[in-house]
């Protein structure tokens, strides 16, 4: 994306999840007076579009605070989300991240597949200057951790003397919670949400066994 916009509060990086959604975006860009592009043309053209901002966003809260941002589309084709395209897609997300950094965004949220690509691998992102990157999962983890701390306070429990059990610890949110809270609790137990064979026979699923526990010394 060319040009830099000063004082951007945030940027959202995403991609279209279907060719229909991509067609709708291009239709808006073409304007009502022009016919919609045929599907085959969209499939031919979209993969060539370099990541760039599509639109500016301004949001306001009920107490009057405002935030200005941009939505940056990485133009990952909807039918190229498999492992075979991982390098190409990481390059697209990097380019989109570059757009966000050059636009001066203070915080950038990676949405959709871009968060899956980069989660836990923030070293894949370009040099970030003052820009912070996050994902929807990160926000969820943040809310959960905050909620647990508040609940402990309300219940009069000391986190440092408590044992934490994370069910679903192999997932993005669960593992994030475990990483955040493990240093703050007495002991942390983690387990996957389901046993692996439940994928094929969900009706026979049993509660997961406790896999391990770690104890802070």
């Amino acid at each position: 994306m060319g040009g830099s916009v000063a004082n951007l509060d945030f940027a959202l990086i995403g991609h279209q999840e279907s060719w229909r959604a991509a067609a709708d975006v291009l239709a808006v860009l073409r304007g009502r007076e022009r016919t919609r592009l045929p599907d085959d043309e969209i499939r031919d053209i979209l993969p060539w579009i370099p990541p760039r901002a599509i639109c500016h966003v301004e949001v306001g809260s009920i107490d009057g605070a405002k935030a200005r941002g941009v939505y940056i589309d990485s133009f990952i084709p909807p039918d190229r989300l498999e492992a075979a395209y991982v390098h190409e897609n990481i390059a697209r997300v990097r380019a989109a991240a570059d757009c966000a950094i050059n636009a001066g965004a203070k915080i950038v949220s990676l949405g959709g597949f871009s968060s899956i690509l980069i989660e836990g691998n923030f070293d894949q992102l370009p040099e970030r200057k003052d820009t912070v990157f996050t994902t929807g999962n990160t926000l969820t983890v943040g809310f959960i951790v905050q909620g647990i701390k508040k609940m402990c306070m309300l219940e009069g429990r000391d986190l440092r003397k408590s044992t934490l059990l994370v069910v679903g610890a192999t997932g993005d949110v669960g593992s994030g919670c475990a990483r955040c809270l493990a240093p703050q609790v007495k002991a942390c137990c983690s387990t996957p949400a389901t046993k692996p064979d439940c994928a094929n026979s969900p009706t026979n699923c049993k509660p997961p066994e406790l896999k391990y526990r770690s104890q802070l010394i």
């Binding site: 994306m1 060319g2 040009g3 579009i49 370099p50 760039r52 901002a53």
Partner: peptide
């Protein structure tokens, strides 16, 4: 340095 959202509209049209 031309804004990307502007040039994308040009090309889309």
């Amino acid at each position: 340095g031309i804004p990307g959202e502007v040039t994308l509209t040009w090309v889309a049209q």
